[in-house]
Computed example of a mutant assay.
Amino acid sequence: MVDLDLRRLRFLREFEERGTLAAVATALGYSPSTVSQQLALLERDAGTPLLEKAGRGVRLNDAGRLLAQHARVLLTAAEAAEADLAALGGDIRGTVRAGALQSAARRLLVPAVARMQAEHPRVRPEISELELEQALPFLRLGTVDLVIGDEYDGHPRPRPAGMRFTVLLEEPLQVVLPAAHPLARPGGPVAIAMLRSDVWAASAEGTGHHAMVVGTCRVLGGYEPDLRHRSSDADVQLELVRAAGAVALLPSLTLPSADPAIAVRDLAEATLQRRLVAVTRDTPPSPALTAFLTAVTDQVPLVLSARP
């Protein structure tokens, strides 16, 4: 009879996802030698080799790929069992690991942490600033429990199997200009086409915001933006507008309530929206995660009422 350790199966599942011992070690906080040792012990438990040489590294063989498929099922079932047992006991405790982009972390996750400390002190929230592209692999593997990401009109996110997506809020995108910009003075909507000669700031390449800015300039303006500045921190983008004369296209939650150094204008050609989306695994949530999600969703109307 094969006796398989769930902890070692997680190492195998991580290796299937990440592809190298070093990447698994970084993700789980172990040394590469520890990862290698755990996989060797799993091979002993399974009674068959699971890895084979591939250049200077290793990769899964047929048996390893087969066991990794079963590991996904077993780990999901174990997680569901833990959630059911916690719910049966009625005790709200445990760790909730949540990630979000900057504006959602600041406006939704941080207040939720404060509420949990007051109402459920036995829950341990752990918050990380993560873009959805970075966070989804962690969510699939169970090292993150909740991710708040964004998506934009015309740039929908993929919906991978095994994930649950819940829209938290929608908000408009607005043009942000230096106060001295010629188009800032009239105070009316600004056409993207009129910003052809400006220098742009956006999030890092590969993010949804970057793709949205480039796509909006192409579709509404008919040009490739001069996108010289890249930061996934909205405050950095705003400072580039203030100090360096850049222009940006940002959702309202990232904007200050009043700032004489910048001008915020609606788009003239269209109304574009950003949606903040909560993503969890499509398995029964633990009571701790349910309580944390309630704290996050209860914060949404407060955020909407306070936005500029």
Rank of each mutant, 00 (worst) to 15 (best):
L6K: 08
F11G: 04
F11E: 11
L21K: 08
A22I: 03
Q37C: 01
L39W: 00
A46M: 03
T48R: 15
K53D: 05
V58T: 08
V58I: 06
R59K: 07
A63Q: 09
A71M: 09
R72C: 00
V73C: 02
T76E: 12
A77T: 04
A83P: 03
D84R: 15
A86G: 02
L88M: 08
D91L: 04
R93K: 14
G99V: 05
A100R: 11
L108R: 04
V110T: 14
V113L: 09
V113C: 09
A118P: 03
H120S: 01
V123T: 04
E126A: 11
S128G: 07
P137V: 01
P137R: 08
V144Q: 12
V147H: 02
P156H: 04
P156Y: 06
R159F: 01
A161R: 14
L177T: 13
A180Q: 13
P182C: 09
A184G: 05
P186F: 07
P189E: 10
A193P: 10
M194C: 11
L195T: 06
M212Q: 15
G215I: 00
G215P: 05
R218E: 15
V219P: 00
L220K: 12
G222Y: 07
L227R: 14
S231T: 07
L238E: 10
L240Q: 15
T254H: 05
T254C: 13
T254F: 00
S257H: 12
R265P: 09
D266M: 13
A270I: 05
L272N: 12
Q273Y: 13
L276F: 10
V277H: 06
R281H: 08
D282G: 09
P284W: 02
S286L: 05
S286V: 02
P287Q: 10
L289E: 07
F292S: 10
T294V: 08
A295P: 01
D298F: 01
L304C: 05
L304H: 04
